[in-house]
Design a protein around this nucleic acid. Structure first.
Lengths: 336, 336
DNA sequence: ATCTAAATTTGAAACGTTTAAAAATTGCTT
DNA sequence: AAGCAATTTTTAAACGTTTCAAATTTAGAT
């Protein structure tokens, strides 16, 4: 923040006109004579005047920046969401302030406060895994802050949302396994406080029921990271001889499972079929290549910004929250 | 930017004291009586007063935000750098404005201007692949904007830098191949306008020379993305029968090469050894697992912020730019 | 009671911008 | 040459803070 930046005031002094004349000349206000406009604009051009965005925001009561709270940047899904957000936001003249919650509710709350303090015009959020209460968000919403939730949303919060139909995702994955002839399918699930966790699981359960297969609680494991696969390694291996299909809540966990199984002599998909969720670049690196549910991160990012901008540009429409739902598809490769 | 946010002015009015008293009470200024302090602070607490960061920045002539220009968020290396940056920056009270250049010089220039317009206190940059001229940066530097370059830096620019010793990286990778008995080693290189591209290549060349192996131009291919591997597919396959080692400038390209070679009947590492660069999560998914040069993204991110903060907190030390160099190590797995 | 010093509070300017309203300038008409 | 309208420019307030300098209040000493 070097303050050797030229200001409107400097221009006014140099040119011996008033500050407001400069301001108006720069934005082509009809009151100003052509002569003066040229004078001011040439000077501004020549010395590379750039308005101070901070002052503008303060004056306008609008910052043209939007905040993002995201569990972790390093996951491919999230970073592709960010790409989509960044792309559209910048194109529309907004800049992005990104905060990571690191899957931690407390950090998430701090992040939210930071963004409010910075007077962002709106906020995009994907909930952390450990978030159990939502007052911080409902307070912000009540105070009038536009918030769009994406992917990891929460039912209780009335707000704009962008999601994939995770129930459907769980269903088509499980049905595919069933159609392949699998009879004993386990599910490695996300934490059940997350809606996406419950939905994918429900899709899985309903698909089984529809096929007349009993849903067994001992065949649903909470396991959604590589690390957890290591922790549950023995448990999974004990289960392995009795099962012929696994529906896993995300790709990297699915890959870790495949690796563990392969190391222990199980053949994928001959002995056990595995389906992941996400379709990141890893999916086509693992051998056998991973059959997985496609999640459109980039598009979801864009859509979230769209929804937010709609609300920003139309603050009248107080109510009428929208939920944009992406339909998941199954990318069939070799692992199932 | 809902303006129903409580201001210091509101508090002053409600409490029938002056604005400056409120301001001072809140920051525990010794002039203010304990009584008044309590009064003000209780009120502020009760109604959840939060200072307007925009106004603060304007007044202080310091925004406590730093800008980041990065080629692409979706690459694991860069997203782990971001993580490191975000972590430390937030901890130190700075917030982060992230811009993607998408490997495009023009976008990079726009990004830079945006950040300057936002009066960030300093900027972190990793150059885009297509950046050929550097006036935009030297101008910013000259005007006093602190800039730290990381990973993709440029020799001509005098500034703080954080890099890995890429020459060394190229050297140890190539030497390892030579020690394994490889005699015909090709190099898939990054664009040579990037310093990292030249350095890794030079490391490769020198290692060959030192071993008495002729350096052949036709054995150095510009090829640093999955897509380019597809484009050069036939060329690579034509070369393949005559070679026994490949040093590739990044992991994802290395993986793509392995896949192409395997599909065409070459065995890795028996027929051809392959070494990558980066050590992202993909490296241990591919079969055979990838031997690769380790790049510490998270740590480089943190170090960049550290350097920047040093400069921000010590604007006196005009000169004396620092370059922090990380020593690369080789992670030996199965592909070489 | 008055004075003085110390303690406390307030007013005003500043950061860089916009904009409503007032003021000054111009150019026609007569 | 005066009057008037139209054109152009300026003044001032505002956005939410901080902070210097000035003003006010308090309390102790006479």
């Amino acid at each position: 923040m070097k303050s050797n930046q030229l200001t409107i005031k400097d221009i006014a002094k140099s040119l011996n006109v008033s500050i407001s004349t400069v301001s108006r000349a720069l934005k082509d206000h009809p009151d100003i004579s052509q002569e003066t406009k040229d004078l001011v604009r040439n000077y501004a051009e020549k010395f590379n005047y750039r308005p101070n965005v901070l002052a503008l925001s303060l004056r306008r009561q609008r910052s043209y920046s939007i905040g993002l709270i995201i569990p972790a940047i390093v996951h491919h899904f999230f970073s592709s969401v960010i790409s989509g957000i960044e792309e559209l936001a910048h194109k529309e003249g907004y800049n992005l302030i990104i905060c990571q919650s690191n899957e931690n509710q407390y950090r998430e709350m701090i992040n939210l406060q930071t963004l409010i303090d910075h007077r962002v015009d709106g906020i995009l959020v994907s909930l952390s895994k450990t978030t159990q209460t939502f007052e911080h968000f409902s307070e912000a919403l009540n105070s009038g802050m536009p918030i769009v939730f994406f992917d990891r949303v929460c039912e209780q919060l009335e707000a704009d949302k962008v999601i994939t139909d995770d129930y459907e995702g769980g269903r088509i994955a499980t049905e595919y396994l069933i159609n392949k002839g699998c009879k004993n399918i386990i599910h490695l699930a996300a934490p059940q406080n997350l809606l996406i966790g419950r939905e994918r699981r429900n899709g899985y359960c309903d698909a089984l029921r529809k096929a007349g297969i009993e849903v067994r609680e001992d065949r649903i494991l909470k396991c959604d990271t590589r690390e957890e696969v290591q922790t549950l390694r023995q448990h999974i291996l004990n289960l392995a001889p009795d099962i012929d299909g696994i529906f896993v809540v995300n790709d990297s966990t699915a890959i870790a499972v495949i690796q563990v199984l392969q190391q222990n002599g199980f053949r994928i998909p001959e002995d056990i079929s595995v389906i992941g969720y996400g379709d990141g670049p890893n999916a086509s690196i693992i051998k056998p290549e991973l059959t997985t549910v496609v999640q459109k991160g980039y598009e979801m990012g864009r859509e979230s910004v769209k929804l937010l901008l709609q609300r920003l540009n139309n603050p009248a429409a107080d109510i009428n929250y929208q939920t944009k739902v992406f339909k998941p598809t199954l990318k069939i490769r070799k692992s199932a």
